[in-house]
């Protein structure tokens, strides 16, 4: 089923547009990766879709309904979770408190959700009383993604989830993201580690100067010589 569709998005941070007609779509059960050079507008596109900055032209559809320029709180209650690249945890709160905050917008028992997140990230169960700000980069990233999973999202949006992680942790993170997709959650992520990300992606987009350049399955994009030369370092 079509989960998210963003068509012909124009917009930016208030000044000149950064996005010039970018489009993406995400279905259930798929990992969609957005790659591209620095400044191509990858993160900007994510923010525009999530309602963090103004979409001047174009439309965003979620499960077929328009949600263009909807406020982030409402995105959360519809089942869309977003993990920013930086400052994505509450450092003075414990791991468990971070996760509880993830479910703030929801009513009802959060225990089953907590268990679900702990089953994806067993490490977080061990460290649940630890202050999140005192943890390693990889663990913080688990907290950040775990926090987003607490709303039981249908769509998970990740902005560079592996930024600053060691190669071993990058592999592990991508493995976890596959696990999340296998729970039936649509995942869209921006990635600098383009080759590895495309390798686990069902589909991918290559953005250039705020618009789509290529779009194909992950495998095809990896095999595409032009993409390889331009964006994947040969």
């Amino acid at each position: 089923m079509r989960l998210l569709e963003a068509n012909n998005i124009h917009g930016g941070y208030g000044g000149a547009d950064i996005l010039h007609g970018a489009s993406i779509r995400v279905d259930n059960d798929e990992i969609v990766v957005i790659v591209g050079a620095n400044g191509a507008g990858k993160s900007t596109l994510m923010k525009a879709v999530f309602g963090l900055l103004h979409v001047r032209e174009g439309e965003v559809l979620y499960q077929g309904k328009p949600i263009t320029n909807t406020r982030p709180e409402q995105m959360v209650s519809r089942g869309i979770a977003y993990v920013p690249q930086e400052y994505n945890i509450f450092p003075s709160l414990t791991v468990q408190e971070n996760l509880e905050m993830g479910a703030y917008a929801l009513r009802g028992n959060i225990r089953p959700r907590l268990e679900k997140v702990f089953s994806v990230f067993p490490r977080l169960r061990e460290r649940r009383r630890q202050e999140a700000g005192l943890m390693s980069g990889g663990e913080r990233q688990m907290v950040a993604i775990g926090r987003a999973l607490m709303i039981d999202p249908k769509l998970l949006m990740l902005d560079e989830p592996t930024a600053g992680l060691s190669p071993k942790l990058i592999d592990e993170t991508f493995e976890r993201i596959r696990g999340i997709r296998n729970l039936g959650i649509g995942v869209v992520m921006v990635e600098q580690n383009a080759k590895q990300a495309l390798a686990i992606a069902d589909r991918g987009y290559v953005l250039a100067t705020g618009a789509n350049r290529f779009e194909d399955t992950g495998a095809n994009l990896l095999a595409n010589r032009e993409v390889a030369e331009m964006f994947l370092g040969g």
Binding site: F50, L52, P72, E73, V76, S77, Y82, P84, Y87, N88, I89, F90, P91, S92, L93, M101, G102, Y104, A105, R147, I151
Partner: peptide
């Protein structure tokens, strides 16, 4: 108090 932007993204009113 920790992170206002993240609180908004998280859906804290």
């Amino acid at each position: 108090s920790d992170n206002m932007d993240l609180a908004l993204i998280t859906g804290i009113p």
